[in-house]
């Protein structure tokens, strides 16, 4: 039973992911006074890309070919095991540190692929991505650690469950600091403004787009889809960690349906909020990036401290 639920959860995340991107694009367009596409537009793009055969650069090796499936697999594994709809069973068995590690694997795979093409843009994007990742990972781990001390375990399911059963524990200085740190880390990890601009192909600024520049057809579809899923996963985790209401804590159909609806609402709500925030921000210069990330690291460290001081 729980396996079925976990597979369903994974499918839900996979289906939801392009819509998440669609919502951010649509909201942003609306706020900037443009007409913009519909929510489902990314799905149409994916369908179109999936029909086309992939083309590889002449010098590309196995890393380039392996990256899209690896990226896809890491996103799916996290979607399979992390507590998005329910904290019971397989979907809820994930450990926070494992999730961070698995996501990092995807990042590294893509960075290697960018290098593998041998083009200038790919290498540049990879080196930038790795610089950012190196600064973001400690923050992610620390803020996760701050959250886990509250419950005494690093199991994502237990943390979300504890939050859902005792909402008062969610609004502590620890979790606020961790939220701020994790929020910035998520922005950096998913390549959003102010760290990276997903809608630009300007060589001076692009990070994520530079690495995927050589992909085409089915491979590009996989990379895009997996990236959309990463955004959905991280937003979903952020939502469930800090707004834990609505997560199914038992495996009854009613609860599960409610949990699924709650997840969709949370993720799309956060996506809209993200897009609205992006309208008011400018992308930071690359050399100012360490400042932002050091700030989020300091916040995460403070969160850990606060969890020992105030607890």
């Amino acid at each position: 039973m729980s396996w079925v639920v976990a597979v369903a959860q994974m499918l839900l995340v996979a289906v939801l992911a392009p819509f998440t991107i669609g919502v951010t694009k649509a909201v942003r367009a609306r706020l900037e006074g443009r007409a913009g596409g519909r929510f489902g537009q990314p799905w149409r793009d994916l369908r179109k890309l999936l029909r086309k055969p992939p083309i590889s650069p002449a010098d590309a090796g196995m890393f380039f070919l392996a990256a899209p499936p690896v990226l896809m697999a890491t996103s799916l594994i996290v979607a399979f095991t992390a507590p998005f709809v329910t904290t019971v069973g397989v979907g809820g068995s994930a450990d926070l540190i494992v999730v961070v590690g698995v996501l990092l694997l995807g990042t590294v795979a893509l960075a290697l692929a960018g290098l593998d093409t041998g083009t200038a843009f790919g290498g540049m994007g990879s080196s930038r991505e790795m610089a950012i990742a190196a600064l973001v990972e400690p923050t992610l781990l620390l803020s996760v650690f701050a959250l886990s001390t509250r419950v005494g375990t690093t199991s994502l399911g237990r943390i979300v469950e504890a939050g859902a059963s005792d909402p008062a524990r969610v609004f502590t200085p620890t979790s606020l600091l961790a939220l701020a740190a994790l929020g910035i880390a998520v922005l950096a990890e998913t390549g959003r403004i102010p760290v990276d601009n997903p809608s630009t192909h300007l060589e001076l600024t692009m990070v994520h787009e530079a690495m995927t520049l050589e992909y085409a057809g089915r491979d590009l579809a996989q990379v895009e889809w997996a990236s959309a899923m990463r955004l959905t996963i991280l937003l979903g985790l952020l939502g469930n960690l800090f707004v834990p209401w609505g997560v199914a804590t038992e495996l009854s159909p009613g609860w599960l349906a409610f949990g699924a609806v709650a997840l969709v609402v949370k993720v799309l709500g956060l996506a809209a909020l993200l897009a609205a925030g992006e309208v008011f921000l400018a992308k930071l210069r690359l050399f100012r990036m360490p400042e932002l990330l050091a700030g989020s690291f300091a916040l995460a460290l403070l969160a850990v401290l606060a969890s020992t001081i105030l607890a």
Partner: peptide, 11 residues
């Protein structure tokens, strides 16, 4: 909560 925000504003 207030203490946390107090520290946060200082940072």
């Amino acid at each position: 909560l207030f203490c946390g925000l107090f520290l946060l504003t200082a940072v």
